[in-house]
Amino acid sequence: MATKHQELLTLEGAKIAVAASEKKAREIGVDMNIAIVDASTHLLHFSRMPNAKITSISIAMDKAFTAAGHRVGTHTYKEAVWPGGPAYGLGNTNGGRFTTFGGGLPITNSKGEVIGGIGASTGTPAQDQQVVQAGVDALEAVLKGKVSAKL
């Protein structure tokens, strides 16, 4: 039987992504809920900034879940999920957790394999997207050796 070794996103790596995301949220002036999941879509780390919307907690988690589980950013579904679109109804799958608007990105390793996902919610989808992109960029900088940290 063949097996595959999968790199794992560590809690330290998740904290790096959250710290960068929180910094971006402060820069744009919107407190956020930020969730990090592992490759299996289970919650690894969560941050709720002081003025983040309580109703956005589960949305941030669901964006991370969708990005890791489907291996693409949640913003990619925008046109496909409208009535008549090829993926219409997709948002009703996975117990209603599948998210089809911006603010969720997969986290990949240096080989391009998905090792987790990040989701943010409270702002507009564009603001949420900026925040998660900052988290992904921070992890990529570590992986490329531009910043020293243990993942």
Rank of each mutant, 00 (worst) to 15 (best):
M1F: 14
M1W: 13
T3E: 15
K4Q: 14
K4R: 15
H5C: 09
H5G: 04
E7K: 14
L8I: 14
T10F: 03
L11I: 11
E12N: 14
E12Q: 13
E12D: 15
A14Q: 10
A14I: 13
I16C: 10
A17D: 10
A17N: 03
V18W: 04
V18I: 15
V18F: 04
A19R: 13
A20H: 05
K23F: 12
K23G: 10
A25S: 14
R26L: 02
R26D: 13
R26I: 11
E27I: 11
G29Y: 00
D31G: 00
M32F: 03
M32Q: 04
N33G: 05
N33T: 09
I34N: 07
A35L: 08
A35D: 09
A35T: 07
I36E: 14
D38F: 01
D38V: 02
A39N: 00
T41N: 09
H42K: 15
L44H: 10
L44Y: 10
H45S: 15
R48A: 09
N51Y: 09
N51D: 08
N51A: 06
N51L: 11
K53M: 10
K53Q: 15
K53F: 03
I54P: 00
T55C: 02
T55V: 12
S56R: 08
S56G: 10
I57R: 07
I57D: 03
I57Q: 06
I57E: 08
S58M: 04
A64K: 02
T66N: 09
A67H: 08
G69E: 05
G69D: 06
G69C: 10
H70M: 14
R71Q: 13
V72M: 12
T74M: 00
T76C: 03
T76Y: 01
Y77C: 02
K78F: 11
A80H: 02
A80E: 05
W82M: 04
P83Q: 06
P83F: 14
P83K: 10
G85N: 00
G85K: 02
G89Q: 04
G91Q: 12
N92P: 05
N92I: 15
N94E: 13
G95I: 11
G95R: 03
F98T: 12
F98N: 05
G102M: 06
G102N: 00
G102F: 06
G104K: 08
G104Y: 12
L105W: 13
L105C: 04
L105T: 04
I107Q: 05
N109Q: 15
N109W: 12
S110R: 14
E113M: 10
V114A: 04
V114Q: 13
I115R: 08
I115C: 07
I115K: 01
G116S: 10
G119P: 12
G119W: 04
G119S: 04
G119R: 02
S121C: 15
T122Y: 12
G123Y: 03
A126K: 07
D128K: 08
Q129C: 01
Q129R: 03
V131D: 00
V131Q: 03
V131R: 09
V131H: 00
V132W: 05
Q133P: 05
Q133A: 09
A134W: 02
A134N: 07
D137V: 10
A141Q: 03
V142S: 02
L143M: 12
L143C: 00
L143T: 00
K144G: 07
K144C: 06
G145Q: 04
G145T: 07
S148L: 08
A149S: 09
A149W: 06
K150F: 00
K150S: 04
L151Q: 01
